[in-house]
């Protein structure tokens, strides 16, 4: 099966062709490529049916056409389009898996991380340096993070999809990513202030 073709044609031009027959042919060919790629990528998943593949291919096609102006030619067009198709498909599959989780549950989970029992002193064994790291980390989570930051971190630890965290927090993807990034930077800064270096962190494993 040939899933990704060499970039022999100028896809953006073909997809914008003024001749409606040429444009329709390019759109149809791209849809076929996206469908074939999704079939390879999602092969073996019990939660993906033929109908899902059709829906994902169609939704991906629309997304790619909508973002044509963002293609900068640094990779093959088909690779760029497949990346978008996979993002569409996996986002939807993750959303279905986590759709019943509520913000209240996520916030409660996030608050629980501050409970003394949540992170055991001996999480990395009885080594004194590691125990110190865990204590500083636990204190930083409790004192330096906002409730939403704690909730977002707990969501990540529970392997909740980022899009689901974004939706539950009622914010944008960029705002949620900044929230998490700021949280990680705050925790890292606290560790550094406690004399725990990057090397110490890596040696904790």
């Amino acid at each position: 099966m040939q899933v990704v073709t060499e970039n022999e044609i100028n896809w953006p031009a073909a997809l914008r062709a003024s001749d409606s027959a040429d444009q329709a042919a390019a759109v149809s060919e791209l849809r076929g490529l996206l469908h074939a790629g999704l079939r390879v990528a999602l092969n073996g998943r019990s939660d993906v049916s033929e109908a899902h593949l059709e829906d994902f291919a169609q939704e991906s096609l629309l997304r790619v056409l909508d973002r044509l102006d963002q293609f900068q030619g640094r990779s093959k067009f088909t690779t760029w389009a497949q990346a978008i198709a996979l993002n569409v498909a996996f986002t939807e599959l993750r959303r279905k898996r986590w759709q019943d989780v509520s913000l209240d549950a996520l916030m409660a989970d996030g608050e629980r991380i501050t409970e003394p029992t949540m992170i055991a002193d001996d999480a990395f064994g009885a080594d004194e340096d590691r125990t110190h790291l865990v204590k500083v980390l636990r204190s930083a989570i409790e004192n330096d993070l906002t409730p939403k930051q704690r909730a977002a971190i707990m969501g990540e630890l529970r392997e909740m999809p980022f899009d689901q965290i974004v939706e539950l927090l009622g914010t944008s993807r960029s705002a949620a990513y900044k929230m998490l990034h700021d949280a990680r930077r705050a925790l890292k800064q606290r560790l550094l202030e406690a004399g725990i270096t990057g090397a110490d962190i890596q040696n904790a494993f």
Partner: peptide, 10 residues
């Protein structure tokens, strides 16, 4: 999971 937090920070 604790290791995941530490790894994220590193």
């Amino acid at each position: 999971q604790v290791g995941s937090i530490v790894k994220m920070l590193s």
